[in-house]
């Protein structure tokens, strides 16, 4: 670790250094996990766009708004769970077969999407 020399540029340098270290650490993650991360990012960005839209026009079909946002957040949560379970470095889930986790993921998502479709109106 490089110690910052002066306090004025320390925070920005720190942030940059942090960012670089984060990036390099992240590139070490396996592709499978990166796929899941990408998926989560996609879901969350979709959710954010919907929230911005709602802030602009009001929450008129509130059920549709909730349904849309919930589908994104729900599936993001489920993806995060899958990541935790599939990640080989997690000691707790060593005994759990990744396929089993995936099967759960699929099942939960299907149920989630049924609920979303019903609530969408």
């Amino acid at each position: 670790m490089v110690k910052p020399s002066s306090s004025s540029s320390s925070t920005s340098q720190d942030a940059l250094a942090l960012f670089n270290s984060l990036r390099s650490a992240y590139s070490a993650t396996p592709t499978a996990l990166k796929i899941i991360d990408l998926y989560v990012g996609f879901a969350v960005s979709t959710a954010i766009i919907q929230v911005v839209y709602m802030a602009l026009v009001g929450s008129f079909p509130f059920n549709s708004f909730l349904s849309g946002v919930l589908s994104c957040i729900g599936t993001a949560v489920l993806a995060v769970c899958l990541r935790i379970q599939v990640n080989k470095e997690n000691k707790e889930f060593k005994d759990l077969a990744p396929e089993r986790a995936f099967a759960d993921f699929v099942l939960c998502n299907l149920v989630l999407h049924l609920v979303i479709m019903n609530f969408l109106g």
């Binding site: 990408l38 996609f42 766009i49």
Partner: peptide, 20 residues
């Protein structure tokens, strides 16, 4: 906004391709 929503999907697909 509907159009805007397609962007994340496209971004996802593009990202996947980038990941190889």
């Amino acid at each position: 906004f509907l159009g805007l929503l397609l962007l994340p999907l496209i971004g996802f697909l593009v990202g996947l391709l980038r990941l190889g």
